[in-house]
Design a protein around this nucleic acid. Structure first.
Lengths: 179, 179
DNA sequence: AGCGCCATGTAAGTGGTTACATGATTGT
DNA sequence: ACAATCATGTAACCACTTACATGGCGCT
């Protein structure tokens, strides 16, 4: 599932500009998918060319013009077909875990830094997911909540595992000056 | 952290061929990093060129010749430097979650299939991680066990979340013919 | 005065995936 | 017989990342 397809999918929730789409990506997909402008804008251009979306240019004053994209019936059909044909993969590439695998080749200080850094990132993801839950007043597609809950569950598990390990490290190397 | 660097790192645990290295990748990294021959062999060729590893050709009879790679002192230094300079990112790309996000556009049957498929994959990862724990008789680098435990914890959380949701779906759509 | 937000795009580069090419041996 | 394992590699392709280019407005 490439960025093109995902843009199409997000447009089923309503018209948006490339800029808006990036924010939608960040709000809903940040914990399992990333997309930058460098892939979103070309994707939108392609979708418009193939008439899976239409593009309306909106002139604004006081701020830059924007292009509002709307999904077409053909686009909707294409997206449903993509959903039906795609196989549900799940890949990750974690430098964090790769580094930790070689912890014995790093200084204790560096290991502690890496763990602290990752813990912070995870805590931030937890906050974002909680915020997404709050901003959702009322109904929404059930899958959206499934995905949010999945992120919350898995992120919490990861965070707790790391915190436990950090405490373990601290117990082994007590930093207290006086007993 | 690219495949090149990871190959170098894995070679700190002992000499290996490209073929062996792929198996090491699968045994230890499968849940957070993937690498095919198409990236491993070129990586090894590059490392040999730059003398970060040496290569010994071993003629075997009854089976194909192999090339045994050993890390050099320069390679070890290079790897330590990479560990020190790399920032511990953690990216994932999940078609599974992307599809689930749009569950309302899929048939109930397809959603059930997707969930079942993912649950099976996760169960398999759990088995592999348990097997890796068993095959480890005695000591090993602490980071190796940290990474294995991390995988186990997070995978278990994901699996339980999915199972709970599947039960919920079944309760809403009871399949029993008689009450 | 300087930063961050709004807003769109391009071009070059990177790094990994997939498909192809080859072929004997061992296990079912 | 047929599949899997052992074993190495290349070439074309693909999709995304990063850096660059532009510029007004609003807040501190």
């Amino acid at each position: 599932m490439d960025v093109k397809t995902l843009c199409l999918g997000l447009l089923t929730f309503g018209a948006a500009s490339g800029y808006d789409l990036k924010k939608r990506f960040e709000k809903s997909f940040r914990h399992f998918y990333s997309a930058g402008y460098g892939s979103i804008y070309p994707a939108l251009a392609y979708l418009a060319e193939t008439e899976l979306v239409t593009c309306e240019e909106i002139v604004q004053d006081g701020r830059p013009d924007r292009k509002l994209y709307r999904i077409t019936d053909a686009g909707r059909a294409e997206f449903m077909a993509a959903l039906a044909h795609t196989s549900p993969g799940h890949k990750m590439r974690s430098e964090f875990l790769a580094m930790m695998f070689f912890a014995h080749l790093m200084s204790g200080e560096q290991v502690a830094d890496v763990l602290a850094h990752r813990a912070e990132e995870l805590a931030q993801v937890m906050d974002e997911l909680a915020a997404a839950a709050d901003s959702t007043d009322g109904e929404q597609a059930p899958g959206v909540e499934f995905v949010r809950g999945f992120g919350e569950t898995v992120t919490r598990a990861a965070l707790e595992y790391i915190q436990d390990y950090r405490e373990l490290l601290n117990d082994q190397n007590p930093k207290r000056l006086a007993s």
